[in-house]
Simulated scan of single mutants.
Amino acid sequence: RYVNTRGPVTEADVRWWSKLPAREVRTALSQLPEADGYFLPIDDLPATPASSFRRPLLLPAFDEYILGYKDRLFAMTGTTHEHVAPGNMGVFRKTVVIDGVVRATWQGAGGRLNVADIAGVPKYAQPGIERAFRAYPFA
C-alpha cells in the first residue's frame, strides 16, 4: 500500500517510513516491479487523470507529502525546503503544492488567506488556491 500511494519509492524510503526490518521489506518489495532502484506501484490501480495534478493543494504543516520521505527535494528545491522547514529543526510551514511541486507557503486566519510565493506560483493556479482555501476544513 505504501508503494501504491507514495511510489515510486526506494527500499530505503519504505524501511524509513515503515520501520520494518530490512528482510521483511525486501520480501514485500520483491513482489513489485522495479526500475533503476525504484519500486513502482502495481498497474491494477486506476490511473489518476492528469487534470487532477493541475489542481493546487493547500497542505497542512505536517502533511505526509512532505514528511513521508527522508529526502524531500523531489517536491521542492533546497531553497524552498529552507523556507518550508526553517533551520530544519522539525517545524514545518503549511505548503501550496502545484503540479506536484511545493511553490509557496500559506497561512489562513479569520477567513483571510496569505500566500508566500517562494518558487513561482503560476497565474493559472491562483483561482484554484482561493477555492482550496474556501474549502479548507478549519477546526
Rank of each mutant, 00 (worst) to 15 (best):
R1F: 01
Y2A: 11
V3D: 08
V3G: 08
R6S: 08
G7C: 08
G7E: 07
G7R: 00
P8H: 01
P8Y: 00
P8F: 00
P8E: 00
T10F: 01
T10C: 05
T10K: 04
E11W: 06
D13K: 05
R15H: 04
R15Y: 00
W16G: 05
W16V: 01
S18N: 04
L20W: 14
P21Y: 11
A22E: 10
R23C: 07
R23H: 02
E24H: 05
E24F: 00
V25K: 02
R26E: 10
T27D: 13
A28E: 14
A28I: 15
S30C: 05
S30G: 15
L32G: 07
P33Q: 03
D36Q: 02
G37L: 09
Y38H: 13
Y38K: 05
L40R: 10
P41E: 12
P41N: 08
P41S: 11
I42D: 08
I42L: 13
D43Q: 05
D44Q: 02
D44L: 10
D44I: 07
L45R: 04
P46F: 08
P46S: 14
T48Q: 05
P49G: 15
P49D: 13
A50N: 01
A50L: 15
S51C: 06
S52F: 03
S52N: 12
F53P: 06
F53H: 07
L57Q: 14
L57M: 11
L57T: 00
L57F: 02
L59D: 09
P60R: 10
A61K: 08
A61S: 10
D63G: 09
E64Q: 11
Y65N: 10
G68E: 01
G68L: 00
K70A: 09
D71W: 13
L73E: 06
F74W: 10
F74I: 09
A75F: 07
M76W: 01
T77D: 04
G78C: 08
G78E: 14
T79M: 06
T80N: 03
H81M: 12
E82W: 00
H83K: 15
H83S: 12
V84G: 07
V84E: 12
A85L: 11
P86I: 06
P86E: 09
M89D: 10
M89F: 09
G90I: 08
G90C: 06
K94D: 02
V97L: 14
V97D: 03
V97H: 06
I98Q: 00
I98F: 03
I98L: 04
I98W: 00
I98N: 03
D99Q: 11
D99G: 04
G100C: 04
V101W: 06
V101G: 01
V102H: 03
A104P: 03
T105R: 07
T105G: 15
T105W: 06
Q107K: 09
A109L: 13
G110S: 09
R112K: 07
R112W: 01
R112P: 02
L113H: 01
V115H: 03
A116S: 06
I118C: 10
I118L: 09
G120S: 04
G120C: 10
V121A: 02
V121Y: 12
K123A: 12
K123N: 04
Y124M: 04
A125L: 00
P127H: 04
P127W: 06
I129E: 02
E130K: 09
E130F: 13
R131Y: 01
A132Q: 13
A132V: 01
F133Y: 15
R134S: 06
A135C: 06
Y136Q: 08
P137G: 10
F138M: 13
